[in-house]
Write a protein that binds this DNA or RNA. Structure first.
Lengths: 229, 229
DNA sequence: GCAAAAGTGTTTTGTCTACACCCATGA
DNA sequence: TCATGGGTGTAGACAAAACACTTTTGC
């Protein structure tokens, strides 16, 4: 039952589709699944599901993400609503797309196998069903915008990360190279990173200092409007 | 009938709500209506309507706008999808919000009367139904973003406009003052305005030269990524 | 001739970019 | 000792911001 006051109106199926970004240290990846449902079963698809009457659309997206990754409380933002009449040959389905940023190592790999899910590098995307490639294109653009103005890049990195790791991430997102002196100066100038004593020795002999995101200080600076790259 | 392949899924009512901006030369305004439908009949509301199965969500928004203003082919962009369970006490309605920019003088005033619609200055907004105030807040933010990177400010002005008029518009959008020398230099530097010989004498003794948006030249420059303020 | 808005340049400031060498360490 | 990636400073270019006076013309 969708309505108390509104009678005789046409109804719709509502879906959510999630663009889930991960970062493995060198490249950006997206979580895709081999679809199990007709139509288009067996094709590559974004992670999605139908919204229930008992939940908000946002909650549906979080549920879908949770089912696949086991993760809660992760960064997620609505991208766009896709509502053309012919987007899904299986019926009149309007889909709300979301994008999410997760730490690749964070989640249970067995859940991925169960769902036929796979991390796919952004530069090796297959053809996806429906309008999912369009969604992905828009999400890449949006990710760049967001990362430029909000400290969300950290969502893709481990809690402790090094400046070279952070730079690699930004270079992956923007598909371009940055000068490390300029990059470090800019990032550290924001004063939202806390330097730890500890070093990461896996990447080099010398080792690189770990940093953590200083969310307290960020909140202090937030009101002023900062740029992150 | 919403579905061929998908059975036993829960369905939704889908609405569109339009934030319609106009500019009267000094301040930004929004088109609001006194709602005629229960619940909340008689309250102030954004312009909205239900989506039909036969049309895309975008088309529904354009239809709603057309019904109220008589205008087609105007600038319109999807803002956000609002999908919380309790947003509309009349039923489970998910709403997709759009924002549109129109030239205030362009449209038929009688249509507005017919629909109980009124132009309301942004700084004198009444309390609106449901989550419509939230939609408006987001649309103001989005308008600023868009205007900064796309030449859409012109959508709010007459075809011929003066630089002081354009500056007033930008000042209204950003709620701040700009230096006219810097402003003129910046705008003219973009090379997307064509200066006419004619002057607008309504605003001053001296008169201000009219300009028109040079869309041909804009298209040439578009690829490079321009900033508009 | 004067009020009222339009138009016009220059200087200063800050930000972004380009660029090259030393450091620390494990093998 | 050497190979590898980590860390650091400066000078020049460019864009943004601050700032005041002259022009036009209807009354």
């Amino acid at each position: 039952m969708t309505s108390v006051h509104y009678k005789k109106l046409e109804t719709f199926l509502l879906a959510v589709d999630c663009i889930i970004f991960g970062f493995d240290g060198t490249g950006l990846k997206v979580l895709l699944i081999k679809r199990e449902l007709e139509p288009m079963a067996g094709k590559w698809s974004l992670v999605g599901g139908f919204v229930k009457n008992s939940e908000s659309v946002n909650d549906a997206a979080m549920r879908v993400l949770m089912q696949l990754t086991g993760l809660k409380n992760i960064f997620m933002e609505q991208l766009h609503c896709y509502g053309s009449t012919e987007r899904d040959p299986g019926g009149r389905v309007v889909s709300v797309a979301y994008f999410a940023l997760i730490r690749i190592e964070d989640h249970a790999a067995e859940l991925l196998k169960e769902h036929n899910a796979k991390w796919v590098p952004l530069d090796k995307l297959p053809k996806l069903i429906f309008d999912h490639n369009t969604m992905l294109d828009l999400s890449k653009e949006r990710l760049r915008q967001r990362v430029a103005n909000h400290p969300i890049g950290f969502e893709l990195l481990p809690e402790k990360f090094t400046l070279p790791q952070l730079q690699n991430l930004y270079e992956a997102i923007y598909e371009s190279q940055f000068d490390k002196r300029n990059f470090n100066r800019k990032i550290l100038g924001l004063q939202i990173l806390k330097k730890l004593e500890e070093k990461d020795k896996t990447g080099s002999r010398k080792g690189a200092f770990y940093y953590v995101f200083d969310s307290d200080n960020y909140k202090k600076l937030e009101s002023e409007g900062i740029s992150f790259i």
